[in-house]
Simulated scan of single mutants.
Amino acid sequence: MASNRGSRVFLWVALAGGAFFLFVAAIFVLVYVSVRADDHAQFTGFGDRIAVVDLEGVIVDPKSVVAQLKKYGDDSSIKAIILHINSPGGGAAASEEIYREVRRVRDEKHKRIVASIETVGASGAYYVASATNKIYANEASIVGSIGVIAEWYNYADLLKWAKLKEITMKAGEFKDTGSPTRDMTPAEKAYMQALIDDMHSQFIHNVATGRKVKDEDIRPIADGRVWTGRQALPMKLIDQIADFQATVADTAKSVGISGEPTLVTPERERKSLLDLMFGDVSDLIPDRAKLMQTNVGFYYLWK
């Protein structure tokens, strides 16, 4: 009797385990087929394709966006590129790198590239947008913030309270400028301000170059302020009030595409079976954008 009962328990466990395995396998197959179908759909059609590159969130690492721009810029079957922007900007050097690639696509590859600003296209993101052939934005989009910011935390008082003392050895007066453990000297403040002013002048000049106007046209409004899309239009910071769909239609028309174009987007990130079963664990990983304030850095960032 005990043996028969044990066999039945084992049988039920085996059946339950097999059913669970088949269930998981079915989910995996369905997701895989769906993703493959989406990827295939992205690349159907020839000669009537427009690529869409997303620029979202704080600009920290330019590699992905630059690689996409280069790929689509060099693809002769792509008739135009739409840079879909929803970003407050980010690192000065990272924004500059994307700006340069946009200019390369526009001026060297002679491929039409436009910007469609969704909710926010400010500071470094506007810097990037200024290099395109045309900037579209919604009436309520946030645009502008031409300025440079550098900020970090100073915990000198906390160290004093905890009776801790930092020891720094250096060669060069300005080597530890911006140390969070002490106040800056007047000379250090002047040194940092000179760096910020130089980056600001670069920002102004490159926006003016991208927009094909003079530096003097940009300088009066390069005080860090933002405007709505409706306010930005008469200031010539944008070219047209339009949502994303209107941007697609106008861009297609400008490159001679009749009818609805095929939109090409980068391949989506592959999800593993563990991701599907247990969800996204990316929130457990420190966000580099959140860590920026702990270091001395220079940012084209609207806050």
Rank of each mutant, 00 (worst) to 15 (best):
A41S: 14
E97N: 10
V60K: 04
Y126R: 01
P88T: 11
I85G: 02
V52W: 00
E118P: 09
V105K: 04
D38S: 14
V52M: 11
P62T: 02
G89P: 06
R103Y: 00
P62M: 07
R103P: 03
G124W: 00
E101M: 09
A67C: 10
V35R: 14
E101H: 06
V114T: 07
V35N: 12
Y127L: 10
A51S: 03
E97P: 07
G47W: 10
V66T: 07
H84M: 11
D38T: 15
L83C: 05
G121E: 02
N86A: 06
G121L: 01
I78C: 09
Q68R: 13
A125F: 01
R104L: 09
G89K: 01
V60E: 07
H84Q: 13
R100T: 14
S116K: 03
I59T: 04
A41T: 12
S116G: 06
V105F: 01
S87A: 02
G57E: 00
E108Q: 13
A122V: 06
S34L: 15
A37D: 15
I117N: 04
V66F: 03
A51P: 05
G45R: 04
A122G: 07
I113G: 03
G73W: 05
G124L: 02
T44Q: 13
V53W: 00
G121P: 05
Y127T: 10
N86M: 05
R100S: 14
S64P: 13
Y72V: 13
Q42Y: 04
H84F: 11
V53A: 08
F43N: 15
E118C: 11
G89I: 08
D61W: 01
Y72K: 12
V52N: 07
Y126G: 08
L69M: 10
I81N: 03
I85D: 03
T44F: 10
A122D: 07
P62K: 04
A41P: 09
K71N: 10
D39A: 12
Q42N: 13
R36W: 11
A94Y: 01
D74Y: 09
S76K: 14
K63A: 10
P88N: 11
V58M: 08
S87D: 03
D54P: 10
I59R: 00
V58S: 08
R36N: 15
Y126E: 01
E101G: 07
V60R: 09
D54M: 03
N86L: 08
I98Y: 04
V52A: 11
D48Y: 12
V52Q: 06
G121W: 04
V53Q: 02
A37Y: 11
I98D: 00
S116P: 10
R49C: 10
I117P: 02
S76E: 14
V114M: 02
A115F: 07
R106I: 08
G73S: 08
E118R: 15
V120A: 14
R49K: 14
A92G: 08
I82F: 05
V105R: 02
E108S: 11
I98T: 07
R103F: 04
Q42G: 13
S34A: 14
K71R: 13
